[in-house]
């Protein structure tokens, strides 16, 4: 890891100010992706601004079907939240499948979505749940937030404060883990809103990162069943191909995981 200057932020404003003062500052949330990247010398921020000390950024609030999760809430906390499990068990299960127990004790929802790894789980969940990402400056709809591989709508000096969504009537997530990294080789989150609107988000497969699948959404809106998903033709155009599997296999996984997600919902 290259030399750096470490800062402990006491508030969101303090964090923003410290980053602004740095030549190439980065916020440090759980650090479960950033620190390994820095260890490999693939990232070299001049300054790290640790967000752990900021009060009020962690915690889960459930009010009726409205859920708000603080940005610094760990995956373990999301996975273990009894309140969340009552209204949206699929998101709790998703969090419980990220990384491993030790990683889940440090990794945070805010850090995960700010990084927007194309194989991360949360982006699929939040996109399918039509979540709103609240920052220190504004509210951003998930549809606008995830803009491509490792890129988001976040601007300079913008910090995620929380994510919120209305728990849908039904939702489910199924992930096929990469056997090496255990990230999603493909993960599909399906959500059916109270009005019958269906959103299907796919992670791990898209060449541009997380995306919504129109064909699956239409089919599942018409009939909410695994067999409806089974009837959808999944194109492999634009899907990732790497040493682990090709686009055709990922297309197959989209269908298989969609079916499982619906069954689990």
């Amino acid at each position: 890891m290259y030399d750096l200057k470490y800062h402990r932020a006491t508030s969101v404003d303090d964090a923003v100010a410290k980053r602004a003062a740095a030549s190439d500052g980065q916020f440090l949330a759980g650090g479960q992706t950033l620190l390994p990247t820095m260890k490999h010398r693939l990232a070299a921020p001049s300054d790290l601004i640790d967000l752990r000390g900021i009060g009020g950024l962690a915690g889960i609030e459930v009010s009726g079907r409205n859920v708000t999760i603080g940005a610094m809430t760990t995956h373990a906390a999301v996975a273990g939240s009894a309140e969340l499990a009552k209204v949206c068990p699929a998101l709790a299960a998703l969090a419980g499948g990220i990384g491993d127990p030790a990683v889940r004790h440090q990794g945070t929802i805010g850090g995960s979505i700010a990084n927007n790894d194309p194989a991360a789980d949360y982006p699929a969940g939040l996109l399918a749940l039509a979540a709103t990402i609240s920052t220190n400056k504004r509210k951003i709809a998930a549809d606008d937030f995830f803009t491509g591989l490792f890129s988001t709508a976040l601007e300079e000096g913008e910090i995620i404060v929380s994510v919120s969504f209305e728990a849908p009537a039904q939702c489910g997530y199924a992930k096929f883990p990469n056997p090496a990294s255990r990230y999603a080789m493909t993960g599909v989150f399906v959500a059916k809103g109270g009005g019958g609107a269906v959103r299907v988000a796919v992670t791990g497969a898209g060449g541009d990162g997380v995306f919504r699948h129109d064909g699956l959404e239409k089919a599942l809106a018409a009939e909410w069943s695994a067999s409806a998903a089974d009837g959808v033709a999944i194109s492999s155009d634009g899907l990732m191909s790497d040493i682990h599997c090709d686009a055709a296999y990922r297309a197959n996984l989209i269908k298989a995981m969609a079916k499982r997600a619906v069954s689990a919902a």
Partner: peptide, 9 residues
């Protein structure tokens, strides 16, 4: 290409 546990299972 299989240079870490991310890619070597």
């Amino acid at each position: 290409l299989s240079a870490s546990y991310m890619d070597y299972a």
